[in-house]
């Protein structure tokens, strides 16, 4: 019994030490002037009022401007997109948002890579963590943990200290700590890079694609290949749709436009279109595939992209307006076939 007491005392010391160390390091190293932090606060501020959300990766984050949707559809929308967001996390993230908000419409990004991403391959831990850290509820955090992270990522997922890349960047530490101590969050967007962060989760830039060459590996990665589909991803796609339908939420699958130069190189796009169309028809939901948009050659020009896959500010404005237009028309009974090659 004496031994057990001794061990317990030591375990408590170790636990408290790790806890203090982790909190301290988070305070020192977790970037303050980062829109991802601000977005979490914005979400909290809008709690109970969000009616429309856009879910997906950085393409969603950059391509949907919620302010245009708010204005045109008279709604309160929010962009939930984050870099390389795996669909498994999308499910849990969306679930939390639905629990806290009267969501009516969901636009879910589906692309050639959505189902092919191997979330068990430990190569995108930071991407997963950036969304995982945004989950509010501890219960969801614990339940989702095992679905999101493979065993090899547990250490990085649990311990913030294992993710710090540069411990000796004293200039960063100084500015970050100063920024945190100055309570910039409370001053609204003051602490955020307002040039690229447009609010409500949307990030956009003015840079224009300069015609860089596309590597063959990149093309292969961004193409559709049926055999690369991960069962786990399909399961979560179905879970998202079923959850929305169960909650009486309208869900739309959207494949956002891609740089025409890249699209010309991609393969398997017809198979992808058929695959997502089958899912959409199975659940009687709409699928907006902008790879097959009939007017894409005249609308989504190269200069509206900042790189191969992301749109710039101008492109985002055009895309958001076109999507709203098609969405409204389809709600009035117009067939999607009129806009997309099905």
């Amino acid at each position: 019994m004496h031994s057990i007491k001794k061990i317990l005392l030591r375990l408590i010391i170790v636990f408290l030490f790790v806890l203090i160390l982790e909190s301290g390091l988070r305070f020192i190293y977790e970037p303050n002037e980062d829109y991802s932090q601000y977005r979490k606060i914005e979400l909290e501020e809008n709690k109970g009022e969000i009616e429309m959300v856009f879910c997906g990766t950085s393409r969603t984050m950059k391509d949907y401007n919620p302010q245009i949707f708010d204005k045109k559809l008279n709604t309160n929308s929010f962009n939930l997109g984050t870099g390389q967001q795996p669909i498994s996390i999308t499910y849990y993230y969306l679930k939390e948002i639905i629990e806290k908000n009267p969501i009516e419409v969901v636009f879910l990004e589906v692309s050639p890579t959505t189902l092919c991403k191997d979330s068990d391959r430990a190569n995108d831990t930071p991407a997963k963590l950036s969304v995982y850290d945004r989950l509010f509820n501890w219960k969801t955090k614990i339940i989702s943990f095992f679905d999101i992270f493979p065993v090899s990522e547990y250490e990085e997922a649990i311990l913030y200290s294992t993710n710090i890349e540069s411990l000796f960047d004293f200039e960063f530490i100084k500015s970050n700590v100063n920024s945190k101590l100055s309570n910039r969050y409370e001053d609204g967007l003051k602490g955020v890079d307002t040039k690229s962060y447009k609010g409500k989760g949307h990030v956009s830039g003015r840079s224009v694609y300069k015609g860089a060459e596309i590597g063959s590996k990149y093309i292969e990665k961004k193409s559709w290949e049926g055999k690369r589909i991960q069962k786990k991803n399909v399961k979560f796609l179905n879970k998202i749709i079923q959850m929305c339908l169960r909650e009486g939420i309208e869900i739309n699958l959207v494949t956002v436009p891609v740089n025409p130069k890249l699209q010309a190189e991609l393969s398997g796009l017809d198979e992808m279109n058929n695959y997502y169309l089958d899912i959409a028809s199975h659940y009687s939901i709409d699928y907006y595939n902008f790879y097959n948009y009939r007017k894409k050659d005249n609308v989504f020009l190269i200069e509206y992209f900042s790189d191969f896959i992301h749109m710039n500010e101008k492109g985002t404005e055009i895309f958001s307006n076109y999507l709203i237009d098609i969405y409204l028309k389809s709600k009035c009974g117009e067939e999607l076939e009129k806009f997309f090659v099905l």
């Binding site: 030591r10 030490f17 790790v18 160390l21 090899s152 250490e155 311990l159 710090i164 411990l167």
Partner: peptide, 24 residues
Amino acid sequence: RVMVYLGMIASILLFGVFGTDAVG
């Protein structure tokens, strides 16, 4: 003793490599 062991834990967490290749 406590300082030594806590120092070791902190060193592992801060200076150690974790992730794909490491825990492989």
